[in-house]
């Protein structure tokens, strides 16, 4: 396989042709924050947290969808990127009701972890406090739209791995919502197999197992890896 050599943060690294900047960086121990990306799912480049500066002009490109190229120069940590990433988290925190203190995913939440990592100790924008629904009609799981960041990981895992496509997005802009099937209560979904993959994929407390109370909803992100390895390589590795 052809190999590409590029520079990330002044360090020469090589990556196979077709790899993304994100893959090349991770392979070399360079951490880039991500949210919508989840190994094993298609990439959508939607959250914009993984933006990096590329080339002499410093153009911002999403590392999760941009392929490496020969002699590419990439910077993953600049004051501007730090500031912009911080603002992305702040925007998410204002958009819905992320009240960590009373959330099932407190201390097990990727959004909360990102806030810590990116130094968000307060939010400069106005909180919107929308009135949002919680759907607990499913016998095992629930979806709390107050905590949803619209990363569409649930949509993709249900479609691409479980092969069911229970979830999709309706509406636009800040009124966009995750819906099950034709905007029915999840419990009435004729397609959902209750496999629980979306519960594990969801980065926040938006999709949870019923009966979990504050800080109890731990997610098992390895589960997807396990499934994929089993499916692709026929190896059942835990």
């Amino acid at each position: 396989m052809a190999v590409r050599t590029l520079t990330i943060n002044e360090k020469l690294v090589s990556a196979p042709e077709g790899a993304t900047i994100l893959q090349a960086a991770r392979e070399n121990g360079i951490d880039i924050p991500t949210l919508c990306q989840l190994d094993g799912l298609s990439t959508v480049g939607a959250c914009r947290l993984c933006l990096v500066e590329v080339g002499p002009s410093g153009r911002l490109q999403a590392a999760c969808v941009t392929q490496v190229a020969e002699e590419m120069v990439v910077r993953t940590e600049t004051p501007k990127l730090r500031e912009y990433r911080k603002m992305i988290i702040e925007l998410l925190l204002t958009e819905r009701n992320h009240v960590c203190a009373v959330c099932v995913a407190n201390h097990h939440c990727e959004l909360q972890d990102l806030a810590v990592k990116l130094g968000v100790d307060h939010v400069r924008f106005e909180y919107l406090h929308p009135h949002l629904a919680v759907d607990v009609s499913h016998e095992l799981f629930g979806i709390d739209h107050n905590r949803c960041v619209l990363c569409t990981r649930c949509v993709r895992i249900c479609d691409e791995i479980e092969g069911v496509h229970t979830w999709d997005v309706s509406g636009r802009g800040t009124n966009a919502r995750i819906i099950s099937d034709l905007n029915q209560p999840w419990g009435e979904s004729p397609t959902c197999t209750s496999c629980g993959k979306c519960v594990q994929a969801c980065p926040t407390g938006a999709i949870f197992r019923q009966g979990s109370t504050v800080a109890e909803m731990e997610k098992d992100r390895q589960r997807l890896r396990f499934l994929l390895t089993a499916r692709e390589k026929r190896e059942w590795l835990v």
Binding site: R48, M87, I88, L91, L92, L150, R172, G173, A176
Partner: peptide
């Protein structure tokens, strides 16, 4: 805004 990416979806509101 289509609502796919955060800066446009939530940023335009702010």
């Amino acid at each position: 805004s289509c609502g796919k990416c955060i800066p446009c979806r939530a940023g335009t509101v702010q």
